[in-house]
Nucleic acid binder design. Structure first.
Length: 584
DNA sequence: GCCGTTTTCGGCCCGACTGTTTTCAGTCG
């Protein structure tokens, strides 16, 4: 695996952790690999560059990465592989370690299943569970078996799809690689990656050039490819190292725009556009917009839209969710852009489970071009995250005051991510929370409550009088945990009434609220905060995925509170409490 | 395996829930 990127390196470390776990290794050692993997997966800067610029020392300076793992990273970067990893892979059936991703099934029970029932892969597991074999094992029972079957069903739902945060860097690298080739006029990514869907099944890359350019030969030389299962004159199918499939298509330059439109989709959007062309007596295909035999447009998407009497519709909106009607009547939103954001309102430090200090986080946020950063560490019931109790919070408030006194043109907001407890009450007294600039209320426990209970719990928090923002409202983890059952409409209505903001958590496996929820919020007039939930300063750039989701949810700068300049934001946050119909 | 330090070794993610078992192991957040 030459030139491994951060995702690939992170994946190796995760797999090492899983294997060690099945082997019942030292849990702290396992955790160290997991943590390092997480840090790398969320790192904006490629490790190869870090290594190039600062050497092994630079790698060691990253949070969670010490001498040992730094050396392994160097080995991966320089040789494309890792001896220890290859060794470990020999010791475990290759499919087995993926099964730890199934909910309810940890490494220990997986080992038991492997040893007692000879389970080596998903099929074995399904057969054993459906055949009632698992319930007979000591320590397992009927219920365990049921849970495993349910876990397998959830697992199968997302198998074969990739998180945007993982897929996008691949697509970008492939585009960059093809761009180096001479004779290539244009290269762009299309498909659901371009629409920035939260997960994608494959990558679509479009290339404009003459039909005789040696695209296949060029791609054969790409070192990230595992195999090329098919190649014709206009389409080459690649399987990338990490398993994701990529279709590279060669188009004539005169139909490149039509191809972009066609292959970006969505299917429903394309159908609607083709209907529109038909109504005008034309035909729209991936080769162009035609009047009879004559191509009247096709080089660019803009040109095709224009001839169809439409303004350019941003790819994120192309889901046939009313975007064509909106475009027609001049009501397309001016979608929010990353540069509209003035700060991040949900971030952790080493006071709880973050890695960097207050000062480091502030510095990093300033370097992002922000005016402010809210520090929202966990509250005390999050013991595993070393959540803050009242006293530690008061100390942090003092520290932030001192820090702010020394900062110019930047402000750290005093905040907390306070737990919304089982009954909807908050984890710290309202009088303490009132001392803060920005209170994010989040659910971190009892995810399985019935819908009515969770809804009531959220609404109670919204009515607390002190919560400014509801954090990651559905608590889902993409491909890991289903969202809590919640009447989102009722919650949003309550939020609107109380002037409480809903968060769009930008973390790559949260994206919570999701796009449709954002759209709903906009319709109801509920304001949104787009924040990263960063646990170290290297995570701040994942804000881009929040922005993508917001754009898919039709949000404009005015819908998002952290587009406000610092002083206006503070006024807004203070006004939230004052204006509120408080019920304790 | 990382980290921090009272610097080279000890602490690190603890508490709750679930299901199985009848006092606790495994899993999760």
């Amino acid at each position: 695996m030459p030139d491994p990127n951060n995702q690939e390196i992170a994946q190796i470390l995760t797999e090492i952790a899983s294997i060690l776990e099945i082997q019942a290794e030292n849990p702290f050692r396992i955790r160290a690999y997991r943590k390092a993997s997480l840090v790398i997966a969320n790192l904006a800067k490629p490790l190869s560059i870090v290594y190039q610029e600062e050497g092994e020392k630079g790698l060691e300076n990253l949070p969670g990465i010490g001498k040992n793992i730094a050396q392994k990273i160097v080995e991966i970067l320089e040789t494309g592989g890792l001896a220890q990893y290859q060794q470990l892979q020999q010791e475990i059936p290759p499919q087995l370690l993926h099964l730890v991703d199934i909910r309810g099934l940890g490494a220990i029970r997986l080992r038991t299943l492997h040893e007692k029932l000879g389970i080596n892969n998903l099929d074995d597991l399904k057969k054993a569970a459906n055949g009632g074999k698992i319930r007979q094992l000591p320590g397992f029972g009927e219920k365990s078996e049921e849970n495993i079957i349910k876990g397998v069903t959830d697992y199968e739902k997302h198998v074969g799809r990739y998180l945007l945060v993982r897929a996008l860097p691949y697509a970008q690298e492939l585009v960059d690689y093809i761009r180096q080739m001479s004779g290539v006029a244009m290269v762009e990514m299309a498909g659901s990656v371009r629409r920035r869907r939260e997960t994608v099944a494959d990558l679509d890359i479009l290339v404009a050039g003459k039909p005789d350019i040696p695209l296949y030969n060029h791609l054969k030389g790409y070192n990230k490819i595992k195999e090329i299962p098919a190649h014709g004159e206009t389409k080459i199918t690649l399987v990338m190292e990490m398993g994701i499939q990529s279709d590279v298509r060669l188009l004539a330059p005169e139909s490149f725009g039509a191809g972009m439109l066609y292959f970006t989709g969505s299917k429903q959007h394309n159908i609607a556009l083709r209907r529109r062309a038909l109504e005008r007596g034309w035909k729209l295909s991936e080769y162009g917009l035609f009047s009879g035999e004559k191509r009247i447009a096709g080089v660019t998407e803009e040109e095709i839209f224009r001839i169809l009497d439409l303004p350019f519709i941003p790819p994120e909106l192309r889901e046939d969710q009313g975007e064509i009607e909106a475009a027609e009547s001049g009501r397309l939103p001016r979608l929010i852009r990353q540069e509209d954001l003035k700060g991040d309102l949900h971030d952790h430090t080493n006071h709880s489970d973050g890695y960097h200090s207050l000062e480091q986080m502030a510095e990093a946020a300033k370097n992002m071009g922000y005016q402010y950063l809210a520090i929202t560490d966990h509250s005390k019931s999050q013991t595993q995250a070393r959540g803050l109790d009242e006293n530690r919070l008061l100390q942090q408030i003092e520290q932030i005051d001192q820090l702010n006194a020394n900062l110019k043109d930047f402000r750290v907001l005093k905040g907390m991510e306070v737990d919304i407890l089982k009954d909807g009450s908050l984890d710290l007294p309202v009088e303490v929370l009132q001392k803060l600039d920005c209170v994010v209320g989040s659910i971190h426990s009892y995810f399985n409550q019935p819908k009515e209970e969770t809804t009531a719990r959220m609404i109670k928090a919204i009515r607390s009088g002190v919560v400014n923002i509801i954090g990651h409202p559905t608590a889902r983890l993409l491909q890991e945990r289903e969202p809590v059952e919640l009447d989102m409409l009722e919650v949003m209505k309550a939020a609107k009434k109380q002037g409480v903001v809903m968060e769009l958590n930008a973390h790559g496996n949260r994206l919570d609220l999701h796009d449709a929820h954002c759209h709903l919020a906009k319709e109801l007039g509920v304001k949104i905060s787009i924040s990263t939930d960063s646990h170290n300063c290297l995570q701040l750039p994942v804000i881009q995925y929040g922005i993508s989701t917001a754009r898919r949810g039709w949000l404009e700068a005015g819908d998002v509170i952290n587009t406000l300049p610092g002083d206006e934001l503070l006024k807004f946050l203070r006004g939230q409490r004052k204006d509120r119909d408080t019920q304790f």
